[in-house]
């Protein structure tokens, strides 16, 4: 679906993307995970044709580079910043973008999208009156207006409340279920673990590893910790076989509580980069 091969992007002496190669498969939610300044947004900008790579090849749907307008027609972008007109209503915003794309039966398409992002009740309200979460959802609808095959979502939950975040994540899952391919950048590892089929971890513009969240955790997450509570005493047992350890502890008796702390993507990231995702 989307191929980035040996992409480099330099700004003077600064290397924003360093020999990055990725293959996003059709129908998957592909997470691009990294801290601020890791090169995620530059990678997205290269994938949309907004930024030309210093070297390397970008290919979308085997049609060529998204620097060509005819190729860009197949992708939808929801940038990190809200790209809506505050003085227009939600419906007018979507109609504007639908008209530019030449969407057939634009009014019906816009109405269905407003329903999808649960903003149909506020269709005639000016966007300037919307909350951050509502703007984010409408931003997503604007990216969908021409029914693209590939959707690039650059930190779509940045600055929204937990309720709106959940709605957006559910929406992304719904879109994937409808057959859309989604590239999802975030620095919230729990979001990536929750919705992404595969995740690429990038830092300093380089790809550190790529795989399903479970594969990455298995490769880099290290051991699990079984926490055993006996009365007031708490014992932490580091193990690569948490199920076996739980069984052993329970069979030894006197256990008043037990829990397993499993490694997560945060642990993977710490292992790979030596720093936290939100640094």
């Amino acid at each position: 679906m989307l191929t980035l091969r040996d992409i480099c992007k330099t700004y003077g002496s600064i290397t924003a993307v360093d020999a990055l190669s990725l293959e996003v498969r059709a129908g998957e939610i592909f997470g691009l995970l990294g801290p601020n300044g890791a090169g995620k947004s530059t990678t997205i900008a290269i994938a949309t044709g907004l930024v030309a790579p210093t070297s390397g090849v970008v290919d979308l749907l085997s049609l060529g580079s998204p620097s060509q307008a005819s190729v860009r027609r197949h992708l939808g972008l929801a940038p990190q910043e809200i790209t809506l007109y505050g003085e227009l209503t939600a419906r007018e915003n979507l109609l504007f973008f639908a008209s530019l794309y030449g969407v057939a039966n634009a009014a019906a398409r816009v109405d269905s999208l407003l329903q999808l992002v649960e903003l149909d009740a506020r269709a005639k309200s000016r966007v300037s009156t919307f909350s951050g979460g509502m703007k984010r959802r409408l931003n997503l609808a604007a990216a969908l207006v021409h029914d693209p095959q590939l959707l690039l979502l650059d930190e779509p939950t940045a600055g929204v409340d937990p309720q709106s975040r959940n709605r957006i994540l559910e929406l992304v899952r719904t879109l994937a279920a409808q057959g859309k391919t989604i590239v999802y950048t975030t620095h919230y590892m729990e979001e990536a673990a929750r919705i992404c089929h595969r995740v690429a971890i990038v830092d300093h513009g380089r790809l550190l590893d790529v795989g399903t969240p479970n594969e990455l955790i298995a490769r880099h997450g290290g051991s699990s910790v079984v926490v055993v509570i006996r009365g007031d005493a708490e014992l932490r047992v580091v193990t690569v076989d948490p199920a076996g350890e739980v069984a052993r502890q329970l069979s030894s008796g006197g256990v008043t509580g037990i829990r397993v702390e499993q490694p997560d993507l945060e642990a993977v990231f710490l292992k790979l980069t030596g720093r936290s995702l939100r640094e």
């Binding site: 910043e81 809200i82 794309y101």
Partner: peptide, 14 residues
């Protein structure tokens, strides 16, 4: 200023 240019310039036309 509003960032809308980012979306406009990635639209598939001249």
């Amino acid at each position: 200023r509003t960032g809308t240019i980012e979306l406009l310039v990635t639209l598939p036309f001249a």
